[in-house]
Every structure is written in structure tokens, then in C-alpha cells.
Amino acid sequence: MSVEPRVLVFACTYCAYAAAETAGVSKLQYPPQIYIVRLPCSGMFKSYYVLKALRSGFDAVLWSGCHPPYDCHFINGNYKARVRATLLKAYLKQLGFEDERFRLEWIAAGEADRFALIAKEIVENATRLPKLRFIEYREVEVK
């Protein structure tokens, strides 16, 4: 496996993913280490997805949605994401993850340049981070 960092982006269909597509249309270049998973809404936020991504070998995760207060297609999914992301951030800190491992950003459908900029930034930051190492636990039967 290459030593390049890998970054996973969870993007909501209506804003962040649309911004990523617009970045494509505008041919705005950003590092190919960015991978995007499309979700209906940032409000689908599940901490487990972020943890799973880090555990699977991604060096950093970006969760992105529509700008508060009113851009959300589903009324206020972005607020729900923000609440849960704040909790996850605190939790990740306790687990010893660096701050740069997880980021929450609002990117409007038209903000293609902003998407490209954040993508570059987050890969750059991830380059400076050490590879994650996990201690494998084995399940032990308790007598």
C-alpha cells in the first residue's frame, strides 16, 4: 500500500456532493487521494461510519453538508450533524486521535472552489499525520 494519505468524504446529495460535481465540471483540480461517499443528507451522521473509515485505513474523514441555517434540503439535517459531530470530536480526542483526523464542513452546491480548497487542505494536513496504528484485540472467552 502506498504511503500517501487517503481521505474519505461523506457528502450530502444536495450541497457538498453537488459542489464536488460542480468542481468536476469546472475542472478544479484536487488530490486524487480524496474519496467521496454520497449520503442523502448530512443529518444521516453516524459516528460509527467515521470510526469505521479511520479503522479501514483512511487517514482523515470529512463530513460535509449544507450551510446552516437554511440550506438543508431536509429542513435541519445539518444541525443534527453538527450536534453529533461535536460529540464525536470530543470522543476522538479522548481516544487519542489528532484534531485533523475528522472535520465537519458546510459546502454549498455552488461552492466548487471551496470544495477543492478544502480537499487540498485536508490531504495536506493528513500528509503530516502519522499512519494510524490499531491494537488488535482478540475476544477471550471468560470462564
Binding site: 464536488a20 460535481e21 460542480t22 468542481a23 468536476g24 465540471v25 475542472k27 478544479l28 483540480q29 484536487y30 488530490p31 486524487p32 467521496i36 477543492a116
Partner: peptide, 12 residues
């Protein structure tokens, strides 16, 4: 999407 999310943004 291997166009907007791949070929068009990683041309080089």
C-alpha cells in the same frame, strides 16, 4: 461518477 469526481479533477 468517474468523470466529475475523478477524470475531470485529476487530469494531470
Amino acid at each position: 461518477n468517474i468523470r466529475e469526481l475523478c477524470s475531470w479533477v485529476h487530469e494531470g
